[in-house]
Amino acid sequence: MSIKAEGLTYIYQAGTAMESYAVRDISFETKDGEFIGLIGHTGSGKSTLIQQLNGLIKPTSGKIYYNGEDIHSEGYDMKRLRQRVGLVFQYPEYQLFETDVLTDVKFGPKNMGMSDIEAEEAAKRALKLVGIGEDFYKRSPFELSGGQKRRAAIAGVLAMDPEVLILDEPAAGLDPLGKTEILETIARLHRERNNTIIMVSHSMEDVAEYADRIMVLDDGKLVYFDSPKEVFRHYEELEKMGLSAPQITYLMGDLKKRGLQVDDSVGTVAEACREILRLWKEKEEKSAE
């Protein structure tokens, strides 16, 4: 279930005055069941990169392997690939089109060749996963709230039962509650089904909370691909790319500058809490001696 990219490069409108590199020479490999956060400033090539991973756009040069097979080799089953590597676009609710929620979610599985009954079961499972109840099945998708629409649209991809799930800014444009709901849903999916997840985001906080590894893109290049801790250590470089480490990392950095022996690479409030408590205990033990 691994995706491997080798020297991916994508050029928009090659050979014209508008020629521009979206992605430059990117190579990486994912591990099974990993949660990857993909971070980058607007226009850093995040969306272009993920669209290449399920074959929606073909790289100008470079290769993509899924489970060791070159996806652009002769006779490769693209449809099957798109079922296994599910891609949820940014603002996925804009792709809803059916008369009711259930039928819309069934669209994917039916395209994959499932019978109507199978597709309906898959759709119901997916809707349950994202927390949309039975009373919504027969409603028009356009009657739902923003967050519900988003979850229904995500269910549309989940219903195909993908091995790898790629989400492009799944929380963009939602209110804080809707945002937490979506992110929690994704985290739960990851825990329960253990599939590989690649989540695009420009919020370090969101990514720090969930990701095992973070990929940082800047101007189409892969700058870092490492654990959150290692990436946040470079918070000054991140800032130059128009990104920032989580606020808590800055706080810890400031504490360290004031002479406290804390780890300044933590990315979540919970970790920071443990770190400060540890320091506190050490201090108490010292004063007790």
């Binding site: 669209q51 399920n54 929606l56 756009i57 449809k79 798109r82 079922q83 599910g86 891609l87 949820v88 676009f89 996925p92 804009y94 792709q95 669209f107 994917g108 395209n111 994959m112 549309g156 991809v157 195909m160």
Partner: peptide
Amino acid sequence: DKIMKAQMARGAD
């Protein structure tokens, strides 16, 4: 273009 790709990602042909 975006909608087409989104539906293609759901297996539309």
